[in-house]
Design a protein around this nucleic acid. Sequence first.
DNA 1: TCAATATTAGGACAATTGACCTAATATTTC
DNA 2: GAAATATTAGGTCAATTGTCCTAATATTGA
Lengths: 197, 197
Amino acid sequence: MSKKITKDRIVEEADKLFYQQGFEHTSFAQIADVVGISRGNFYHHFKSKDDILDAVIVLRLARTHSMLDDWELENSTPTDRIRSFVHILLVNQNKIKRYGCPVGTLTTELTKLNHPAKKHANEIFVLFRTWLRRQFERLGRDDDADALAMQLLAFSQGVATLYSAFQDDQFIHNEISRFERWLMSIKGGTNTPVEAI
Amino acid sequence: MSKKITKDRIVEEADKLFYQQGFEHTSFAQIADVVGISRGNFYHHFKSKDDILDAVIVLRLARTHSMLDDWELENSTPTDRIRSFVHILLVNQNKIKRYGCPVGTLTTELTKLNHPAKKHANEIFVLFRTWLRRQFERLGRDDDADALAMQLLAFSQGVATLYSAFQDDQFIHNEISRFERWLMSIKGGTNTPVEAI
DNA sequence: TCAATATTAGGACAATTGACCTAATATTTC
DNA sequence: GAAATATTAGGTCAATTGTCCTAATATTGA
C-alpha cells in the first residue's frame, strides 16, 4: 500500500516538474527533494528516468480521458463540448501563461531529444483529436470532421504558444471571442467550408 | 580575421544544434566537435554558454530582418507579402516536420528554463508581428492590423506544432489552402471582421 | 511468531557538464 | 625583424547527472 502511495507521489511530482521545467531539465535529485525521499530509493519504483516519463504520460493520458468523459456528461450538445475544449485556455490560463500547453511543449521537447517516448506522448494529442472529431461528426460535419478537429487543435496550440511568449491577456480573450463566433457559425450545420484561419 | 571566421562558425553551428536538439541538450563538446576546434578554446570567443545563445539570437534576428526586407522587395502587394510569411511552412517543411518552428520552440524552451535570454529571443516574434501588422495596415485594416498579425502568428505556430507532432503532409496542405482562401477574403478590404479560426 | 518480502536510506560509480587556466603558436603592428 | 597581440590546444576543476549497490528497517503472510 505505502508502495503505491510513494510511487504515485513520485509520478505526480514528476508530472508537475516536467511541465514547469521540462523533462531533461528535471533531475532525480529534484524529484526526490519534492517527494521527500532518498535518491537511491528511486530505483525500487522505477528502473530509469525514462520509466518515470512513461508513468507520467500514462497519468496524463488517464486524466485527459476522464476530463473528456466529464465534458461528454456535463454538456448536452457537441457545440458546448467543443467550447469546453477551447475553454481550457481560460481555466488553465495562468499555467499556460507561464509554462505553455503541457501537451504541446512535452511533445516538442521529446521530438528535439529524439526520445523514444515521443510516440507515447503524442497519444494525448490523439485523444483530443478523436474526441473533437466525434463532436464535429455529431454536428453533421462528416466530411471534414477530422480536419476541423486538427484545425481546432492547431488553434489552441498557436494561442498557447503566443500567449506564453507575449503574456498578453487581451490577445487570449480576442482569440476566445473569435473562436466563439466561429463556433456559432459552424453550428448552423450547413456544410459550407469554414474558410478563414 | 580568422578570429571572426571561427567565431561566426561557432555561432552558425550552435544555431543549427540549438534548433535541432534544443539549447540545453547541446553541449560545448558537441559544438567544438562540429566546428573542429578544441573545447578549451571556446572561452576566448565567448565567456559562457549564455553568451553563445545571445550571439545565436542576434544572428537569427539579423536573418529574420533581412528575410522580411527581401519579402518587402520581392512582392508588390501586402497580400503577396503575407503569403510569403505563411509559405515558410512549405519552404522549411522538412525542417519543421522534424524540429518544429525555430522561433516558437526556442522561446518555449527558454520560458521553461526561466532563462534570462527569453525576452531577447522573443524579439524575433516581435519582428514578425510588427512586419505583419504593417502589411495589414496597408490593406486598410487599421483597426485590427495588430490582432490579425497575432492571429497569423498563432496560426503558423499551431500548424508547425501539430505538423511536427503528427507528421501529416495532408494536414499542412489543408491549412495552407485554408489560409489562401482566408487571405483572398480579407483582400477585399471591406472592414468586416474575420470571424473564423 | 518467524520467515519472506517490500521499502527505505545513504553512499559510490563513471560520465558529462560548464567553466577556467596555462603555455605554446599565429598573426598583426610598428 | 621584433614586440605586442590574438588564437589555439590541452588539461584541470568542482558540480551534477543517471545509475547502481548494499545494508538496515518495515511490512506482510503463514
